[in-house]
């Protein structure tokens, strides 16, 4: 992963600051950086979103394609995740360099979305055992400035909120052969309910305290962090330790509580922004990539 090299003195400065609940950029331990979210940024997708969290910049596109349901779940559609680490983010990602990180993130996304309740997969089914919608979620890392997982989960949730899947009907003729008919109205589409889609909160242990939304510099000071995914109701759906170090059991319990609290407020503010943007409709001025 993209990383910075810090001297001992710089590290000490950050660690001491965190102990006093004051971080280098003036935030407290439980504050997020200023986040920007914009949906519907790429016109060739069924739904897209771009999230910017400090210097971390993520673009997510969702494409709905028709496929066959999985054998063990014949009446459900499914989601596929791909993470592309662009060489724009760091030169390390050039060629196959970003592949390992990409699969790690994709695996984590699968794990987060493995809970049945988070997306209503049954609504993605068109025709049991034969046709369903497959949502290809493509994540593009444009810039890495720390706290990748949180930014990605915010962008994925926003993109799923923005996703519009065309409505189709299955017509059956006398011989029993089925035909799929697409609605004439392009605005006639299914929307996904994203209330239960979790967001990731990464808590990095620095010194004796933990911080949310660590920058690259802070990540360099932290040996271990806990990644948890929280739904808007405050339920935990996934838990993972990342990093080289180990954690004290007591601090894990504390981190889970903090994560739940922070995650809930993250969900409310994200939902507010998404609803606001939605209400503006076509009159919204798009910012795009030059904002």
């Amino acid at each position: 992963m993209a990383s910075v090299v810090l001297s001992e003195a710089e590290k000490l400065y950050i660690v001491h600051g965190v102990q006093e609940d004051l971080r280098v950029d003036g935030r407290g331990c439980e504050d997020y950086r200023c986040a920007e979210v914009e949906t519907d940024v790429v016109s060739n997708t069924s739904g897209s979103a771009r999230a910017k969290l400090g210097h971390t910049d993520i673009l997510v596109g969702v494409k709905a394609e028709m496929g066959t349901p999985k054998l063990e779940k014949p009446d459900e559609g499914y989601l596929e995740f791909f993470v592309d680490c662009s060489a724009n983010a760091t030169p390390e990602f050039e060629g196959r360099g970003g592949e390992e990180l990409g699969t790690e993130i994709a695996n984590t996304l699968y794990r987060i979305f493995s809970s049945e309740s988070c997306v209503d997969l049954k609504s993605l089914c068109i025709n049991p055992r034969e046709h369903c919608w497959v949502l290809y979620v493509d994540v593009l890392l444009l810039e890495c400035g720390g706290n990748l997982f949180d930014a990605i989960s915010i962008a994925v949730k926003a993109a799923l909120f923005n996703t519009r899947i065309p409505k189709v009907r299955v017509l059956e003729d006398e011989e029993g052969s089925k035909e799929i008919e697409l609605s004439d109205d392009p605005y006639d589409c299914i929307r996904l309910n994203v209330d239960e889609v979790p967001c990731v909160v990464t808590l990095s242990k620095i010194g004796y305290r933990h911080v949310v939304d660590a920058t690259l510099q802070e990540e360099a000071c932290s040996l271990a962090s806990l990644l948890i995914s929280v739904t808007s109701k405050g339920a935990l759906t996934c838990m993972k330790k990342v990093g080289k170090g180990s954690l004290d059991p007591e601090s894990i319990f504390e981190m889970m509580e903090t994560g739940k609290r922070v995650g809930k407020s993250l969900h409310t503010s994200l939902q507010k922004i998404l609803d606001e943007e939605e209400s503006l409709g076509t009159t919204r001025q798009k910012v795009g990539f030059l904002g």
Partner: peptide, 28 residues
Amino acid sequence: LLPSLNQVSGLLGGGQGGPPDSWAQALR
């Protein structure tokens, strides 16, 4: 777990959501 140091070295889990208390109990 690293038992004599009492440090959790690995943690990986997921599935249906539950309140943090339930996960904390699992961890214990």
